[in-house]
């Protein structure tokens, strides 16, 4: 399957890079990291031009994130206002909003590159929770710069063995994300256990 993807990148070049970077920010399951790595690899071989690959991927990714954020703004606010009618949930939502205000910037930043699979969902949540647009744009565009430069750069440097590189990087990214998710869940469990003990 990834080989088909390499074929698309080498045949159609920049449009494929743009479309996949944009759509993956909207939670479509496209292995965009593999597209970025092959974009870098074909730039190194001379089939594509490095600065064009970098700028296309970057602009498409930031645009995609902005679209997800906007969708969150439109649909999320209505949903939240509906939920907030019950006073119990209102308190919960106020707490969620407070934590987005406190941790949201760092969350958006990390979700663009370190925990990339969470990216689309963080965009929606940030939009729904009413994060200021400029704050979102600043964190998001910084994070995407790291993501695009890292993946295209790795492809450029080590892409002469593209299939092996995609395996290696894909498994590394999966490992980091699953460690991150496990840690958050573990922390939630520990917190619940402490409360559980206090009650006993």
């Amino acid at each position: 399957m990834t080989e088909t993807l390499f074929g698309y990148v080498s045949s159609y070049g920049l449009p494929v890079i743009a479309i996949s970077a944009f759509l993956s920010c909207l939670a479509l399951p496209i292995p965009t990291f593999a597209v970025m790595l092959s974009g870098g690899a074909f730039a190194a071989s001379g089939d594509l031009v490095l600065w064009q690959v970098l700028s296309t991927a970057y602009l498409a990714a930031v645009l995609g994130d902005q679209s997800g954020f906007q969708v969150g703004r439109w649909s999320g606010r209505a949903a939240i206002e509906f939920l907030a009618r019950s006073p119990k949930k209102e308190a919960l939502i106020a707490r969620a909003n407070a934590s987005v205000a406190r941790w949201g910037g760092a969350g958006v930043f990390l979700s663009t590159w370190l925990f990339a699979p969470l990216g689309p969902w963080v965009n929606l949540i940030a939009g729904a929770a009413g994060m200021p647009r400029l704050q979102f744009l600043a964190w998001d565009s910084t994070g995407e710069a790291i993501w695009v430069a890292t993946y295209v750069g790795l492809g450029f440097l080590f892409g002469s063995r593209l299939p092996d590189l995609v395996e290696l990087v894909g498994n590394w990214a999966g490992l980091i994300s699953s460690i991150g998710i496990s840690s958050v869940l573990g922390a939630l469990l520990v917190r619940a256990a402490i409360r559980h003990r206090r009650r006993e």
Binding site: E3, T4, F6, G7, S10, A41, F42, A44, S45, G46, D47, S160, R161, L162, P163, D164, L165, E167, L168
Partner: peptide, 24 residues
């Protein structure tokens, strides 16, 4: 797999471009 010292194991495949083959 990555640390395999022989980088020429990668079989030539249909998705590759001539320049990619040359580089790899």
């Amino acid at each position: 797999v990555w640390s395999d010292p022989d980088p020429h194991q990668q079989p030539i495949a249909g998705w590759m471009t001539p320049r990619y083959v040359a580089r790899s």
